[in-house]
Simulated assay, not measured.
Amino acid sequence: MIGMRLAQWLLTAAEMCGVFYIFLMFFERRSEKMWNSVLLGIMIVVLSGLTVWQREDTAMYSRYFMLACILAVTVAALAFFRTGFWKGLLATALYFETVYFLDVLSGYLGQLATGDEDFVAVIQKVLNPERLFVMTVSRLLVLGAVLAAVHYKGIVKNIFVRYKLVVAVFVLLEHIGLLYCDQVFYFSVVKKRRIDIYFVFFPLLILFVLILTIVFCIWKRRMNWRISVSGTRWRRKAIKK
């Protein structure tokens, strides 16, 4: 049991470190002094501790606690990084909603794979290997997404600067998806199999919007580059004449 608690603590700490890693990669620190770094570390430890306590004492998944985390991290980001409120809020909300959405989705897929109708209900309330597996899968997927975002830093920054409204719509869609998909925790809904459509429609809708946004941004960037190159060539020809 101690080993599983330690594993959950490490996964939760990694989750909290992930969101602040995003801010470190995309925003400037307000101060590089040692005391500032110590305070940031304390903030991460406190948030991780509160999240672990919530998951052990109440439940693995809580949409209301997620909203509290989003607010707390946004405030912390404003204190430690040079970012605006809305940018910080969107980045934080996108991160946590994705983590929680993948938790719900992974739990539901685990329930389908095992054929155990109580699978999600158990991992929601009990710390067991299945819960740790679900948390590990979702956080590995988020880690991959974060590393990809850092790799394509220019495109991601461009999306947040030029298409902030699109990002906001995506975050809203993801939250609506959570509103519907977390019904997997309600036994009466799962028993009647009414929840299947949510796990088909909303993930696909969210994925479609994300892909469409990225493709549009890449296309827009290439078009701007072509216009810039064409303009340069035209000026060179004009100079030669």
Rank of each mutant, 00 (worst) to 15 (best):
Met4Ala: 10
Trp9Thr: 15
Leu10Phe: 13
Thr12Tyr: 12
Glu15Pro: 01
Tyr21Ile: 08
Asn36Pro: 00
Met43Asn: 06
Val45His: 02
Val52Met: 04
Asp57Asn: 11
Arg63Gly: 12
Tyr64Trp: 13
Met66Gly: 14
Met66Glu: 06
Ala77Met: 04
Leu78Ser: 08
Ala79Val: 12
Phe80Tyr: 13
Phe80Val: 00
Phe80Cys: 03
Phe81Ser: 03
Gly84Asn: 13
Gly84Lys: 10
Lys87Val: 05
Gly88Glu: 06
Leu90Ser: 07
Ala91Asp: 09
Leu94Ser: 13
Phe96Tyr: 05
Glu97Gly: 09
Thr98His: 00
Tyr100Ser: 06
Gly110Ser: 09
Leu112Phe: 06
Leu112Ser: 04
Ala113Ser: 12
Val120Ala: 13
Ala121Ile: 02
Gln124Met: 00
Lys125Gln: 09
Val126Trp: 08
Asn128Leu: 03
Phe133Ser: 02
Val134Ala: 01
Leu140Glu: 04
Ala149Leu: 01
Val150Thr: 01
Ile155Cys: 02
Ile155Tyr: 02
Asn158Tyr: 07
Val161Thr: 08
Val161Pro: 00
Lys164Val: 03
Leu165Trp: 04
Val167Lys: 01
Val171Met: 01
Glu174Gly: 12
Glu174Met: 13
Cys181Leu: 01
Asp182Gln: 09
Gln183Phe: 10
Ser188Phe: 11
Val190Met: 00
Pro203Asn: 08
Leu210Ser: 14
Phe216Gly: 05
Phe216Ala: 15
Cys217Phe: 04
Ile218Phe: 11
Trp219Leu: 07
Arg221Pro: 02
Ser228Gln: 10
Ser230Phe: 12
Arg233Glu: 15
Trp234Leu: 15
Arg236Cys: 07
Ala238Trp: 07
